[in-house]
């Protein structure tokens, strides 16, 4: 059974200012007799992005991460993905994770559409052979036709999104991590994409979605976690967490 369990996770980012990153500064400080305490302090502040976050994502959970900009949603998603390993706390992952934070990730504007289908597939962890097998179906779904033989820089934004969407929904991971959902391009395509998206979502055992869109959260999720300033404020049903979020931030409402 796929799951992710976080226990007391702390994530902090040291902020290296331009000077703090330079070896020269370190050396000069050392030679001018600055105390270690001082020179460490001069490196700047530590941004505490997550503080003591504990959460469980179990089989069948569709969890929405709710919070203001900068509350720590994206950082939490990256922890779930295994990109940031916490300095304190434990992360227990069971199952194959697919983070789809950026569907255009790793795409090469100079390469053709077909090349990018292959490349994006490799990034998602599929093999070349598998991608060659799936490429015709992906190509057909995008409706891009002969454009797939042209470099991707000739594509419009919508066409690129179609391509990214088509490749990314081709995989079937256990755990799906999304930042602001998947956009599929223009209106006519969205209809077609909806069915595929539903099927894609149903396949995943666990979904974690960071979003500001209330409709999306209500339609898609069965649980929610409210994060403020890097801490989990409350966990529960979508309804109760949304209510709490609105109560806390009466001035800032969610998008309808």
């Amino acid at each position: 059974m796929a799951h992710i369990r976080l226990h007391n996770v702390h994530i902090s980012f040291p902020l290296y200012e331009v000077a703090g990153r330079s070896l020269k500064k370190r050396l000069i400080e050392g030679s001018t007799g600055g105390r270690i305490g001082n020179s460490q302090d001069s490196g700047g502040t530590v941004v505490q992005a997550l503080e003591g976050v504990s959460a469980q994502f179990e089989h069948g959970d569709r969890v929405a991460l709710i919070g203001h900009n900068g509350a720590g949603k994206t950082t939490l998603l990256r922890v779930l993905a295994g990109i940031y390993e916490p300095a304190l706390g434990t992360v227990d992952v069971q199952g194959q994770i697919a983070p789809l934070f950026d569907i255009g990730l790793g795409m090469n504007p100079e390469a053709t559409g077909y090349d990018n289908i292959l490349l994006r597939g490799l990034y998602l962890g599929l093999s070349k052979r598998e991608m060659r097998k799936r490429a015709p179906a992906i190509a057909e779904f995008t409706e891009l036709g002969d454009f797939l033989d042209l470099p991707m820089r000739t594509y419009s934004l919508g066409m690129r999104m179609r391509l990214g969407f088509a490749v990314c929904t081709e995989i079937d991971p256990d755990i799906l991590l999304l930042d602001e959902g998947l956009s599929a391009g223009d209106a006519s395509f969205v209809k077609k994409a909806d069915a595929r998206l539903r099927e894609f979502w149903d396949k995943a055992a666990v979904i974690v979605l960071a979003s500001h869109s209330e409709t999306m959260i209500r339609n898609l999720c069965n649980k929610a976690i409210l994060i403020e300033h890097g801490r989990v404020v409350c966990t529960g049903t979508v309804e109760s967490v949304l209510e709490r979020y609105k109560a806390d931030s009466s001035s800032v409402a969610l998008e309808p």
């Binding site: 040291p14 270690i36 305490g37 460490q40 302090d41 490196g43 502040t45 300095a87 304190l88």
Partner: peptide, 11 residues
């Protein structure tokens, strides 16, 4: 603040 950086380095 000062000990924080030291703490993280050790950690």
């Amino acid at each position: 603040r000062q000990t924080q950086r030291g703490f993280w380095a050790m950690q």
